[in-house]
Amino acid sequence: MERKTLIWVIDDDPELRALLAEYLDREGFDTRVFADAADPVRRLPRERPDLLVLDLMMPGEDGLSVCRRIRATGDDVPIIMLTARNDPIDRVVGIEMGADDYLGKPFLPRELSARIRAVLKRRTAPRAGAPLPEEEAVSFGDCRLDLSSRSLWRRGERIEMTTGEFALLAALARHPHQPLTRERLIEIARGPESETYERSMDVQISRVRRLVEPDPARPRHIQTVWGVGYVFVPDPPDAAAP
């Protein structure tokens, strides 16, 4: 029997937990719910959910702190943040902490289900119509982006990335020398239905630059095109691969 996709929902609202557990189970997921993050965070080293739904505002340790702590261990489990605060800065901070997507309350359970499927699809499949085949890798500077294994290597060492960071870098690498607007990057990396803010994209660009650039303040490969967006500049053809 095929294993169902395991979703952990961490939220202090008992009515919302019950609603999401019932709905997501009907959608074919295996859903576990938690009132706070203490127990699921303890379980993470030995149990592996396919995705976390994590509330921002919780008593005790808040969702941003939990997300930051998970990412600090190198764990790249996909995370969707929930918040009742209608403040764009929350989305920016959530992306900075390593969240893959963000959903404001109130929301329809159907919307959360769609977001979950979109995040998991970005993790397991390349964007349709990408110029580079999935089996290829892109080498630039002292980095190698492996599109098949969805991994980034720098000087022979694997670099941990969130699904959102990988999707963004892959989107740029698949369109070398082609300036992409923030709107286009959001569409390629996160899907046309994404509500990602342009400011969040700037934040994630900064995060990716810190992973791949020798000097993020003076980027060589992910360059800003003023008034347009960003462009990926690979090495010249005669440059040595890392």
Rank of each mutant, 00 (worst) to 15 (best):
E2K: 14
K4N: 07
W8K: 09
D12N: 12
P14D: 01
R17N: 06
A21D: 06
Y23E: 03
L24T: 00
R26W: 10
E27K: 13
A35D: 07
L44T: 01
L52G: 03
L54N: 04
D55A: 15
M58F: 13
S65V: 06
S65P: 00
C67G: 07
C67A: 10
R68T: 02
R69K: 15
R71C: 01
A72W: 00
A72G: 02
T73K: 08
G74F: 00
G74C: 03
G74M: 02
D75L: 08
M81F: 03
T83Q: 08
A84C: 05
N86A: 15
I89C: 11
M97A: 14
G98F: 00
A99H: 02
D101C: 07
Y102F: 10
F107S: 08
P109G: 12
R110K: 15
E111W: 06
L112R: 03
R117M: 02
A118P: 00
K121S: 13
A125H: 15
A130D: 05
L132D: 00
P133F: 06
F140G: 02
R144A: 15
D146V: 04
S148R: 05
L152K: 08
R154C: 08
I159G: 03
E160W: 09
M161I: 01
M161T: 02
T163D: 02
G164E: 03
E165R: 07
F166D: 00
L169G: 05
L169S: 05
R174Y: 07
H175D: 09
H175K: 13
H175Y: 11
P176L: 14
L180M: 11
R184Y: 08
R184H: 09
L185M: 04
L185Q: 01
I186W: 09
A189H: 02
G191N: 05
G191V: 06
E195L: 04
Y197G: 11
E198V: 05
S200Q: 02
M201A: 08
V203T: 13
Q204Y: 08
Q204L: 12
R209H: 07
L211G: 01
E213W: 06
D215V: 09
P216C: 10
P216F: 13
A217H: 14
R218W: 14
P219C: 09
H221K: 13
H221N: 09
I222M: 04
I222N: 00
V225N: 05
Y230R: 14
V233L: 13
P234I: 13
